[in-house]
Each structure stands twice: as C-alpha cells, then as structure tokens.
C-alpha cells in the first residue's frame, strides 16, 4: 500500500464526439457568400420570415425556402450572456459577451461574440455591427466576422427586435 498518496476522490471522464460535417445546399450557399463577405439568408414563401443561416426549409411552415435575401451586417442584440468561466480549448479570455444577434431584415438570431464594448453596459435592444477580418483571410467560416461591436444608435424596443426591415430601424421619432 502506498499510504503516502491521498485517496482517489475524482476522475476525468471526457467524452469526445467526432463529426464529419458536409454542408447541404442552403448552408453551402450561406458559407460561399460568407467567403465573399456577404450575409445571405432565405425567405419563406409562405410566412415571409427570413432565416440566416438558412437550412433550406422554413421550420414554422415546413416548406422549402429558395429565395435568397442578402442582409446587412448590422443588427440588434436580442439576448446575451457574460461568460466568466474559461472553457477548455477556447482561447477567448473571460469575461466576454456572447450575444444572440438579429440582423436587420432577419427574423431569427444567431450567436456571435460582442466585443469593443463595456460588458456591463451591454443590453437587449442594443444596436451592433460586424467587425470583419481583412478580406484576404476570408474563408467559408462565420469567424470571417471577428466579432460585433456596439453602434452609436438608439436601442430598438424589445417588441420590434426581429421585425426590422433590411434598411434598419430608421430615424426614431
């Protein structure tokens, strides 16, 4: 017996899942547009909702979506979280902000990093814009956008988030 060593009180039990992802038609178009620095969504022919990234069908209506809609790189914070706990393998130094962002003209949010901001001042309805990497670094990847940063614009009222036209919120009354 090796009495010198302390008793075992814990074990590491990692689970690793290995995926081979192949993009379908709609995600492939989204990624190809992204490599050109464009944000491409799709509009549902029935309910008119615009999805980005599009999956090729409307989850609400269950019908195929084919119409492409190019969206601006400006949007609104729909929700967010301030991450304080380091995640193994993630190089980003906490605390940082992860936000659900709805682009102008879109009806659904995606997750991205919100930076160049005061974390404690981030809020729902805040206006943001993409900060892109230099074009020579663009690939088929969402991190062509380094992060989003706040815009000096009035907040969007909660009930209007996700309903703005492609032109944005416009001049507030």
């Amino acid at each position: 017996m090796s009495a010198a060593r302390p008793d075992v009180t814990g074990i590491e039990a990692p689970v690793y899942l290995h995926y081979h992802f192949t993009a379908g038609t709609a995600p492939a178009r989204f990624l190809a547009r992204l490599r050109e620095g464009l944000l491409s969504g799709q509009r549902c022919p029935r309910c008119g909702n615009v999805y980005i990234p599009a999956r090729g069908s409307c989850p609400a209506c269950g019908v195929p979506t084919t119409e492409e809609v190019l969206l601006p790189d400006r949007g609104t914070v729909q929700s967010f979280t301030i991450v304080h706990i380091p995640i193994p393998g993630n190089p980003i130094e906490p605390p940082y902000v992860v936000a659900n962002i709805v682009l102008d003209g879109a009806n659904i949010s995606f997750i991205h990093l919100l930076s160049d901001c005061v974390n404690e001042a981030v809020r729902i309805g805040q206006r943001v814009q993409a900060v892109w990497r230099p074009p020579e670094e663009w690939d088929y990847a969402m991190d062509n956008i380094r992060h989003f940063r706040p815009l000096d614009e009035p907040d969007v009222p909660v009930e209007r988030i996700g309903t703005l036209p492609v032109s944005g919120p416009g001049v507030p009354r």
Binding site: D7, V15, L17
Partner: peptide
C-alpha cells in the same frame, strides 16, 4: 450562384467531464 465545391469538414466536440467518485467508488479506485 453555382456551388462547385463540396464543403466538408471534420470537427470534434469534447465534453471534458470530471466526476467526483464518492466514498465507495473512490476507495475502489
């Protein structure tokens, strides 16, 4: 726009769990 390239990529999702073993399993280990 025609997509000529097949976009395909390997990736790994890791759940780096640690478990506390409790008095019985801990003593067994």
């Amino acid at each position: 726009m025609a997509i000529t390239e097949k976009l395909s990529q390997e990736f790994e999702l890791g759940f780096t769990y640690t478990r506390s073993t409790g008095p019985v399993v801990g003593r067994f280990l």
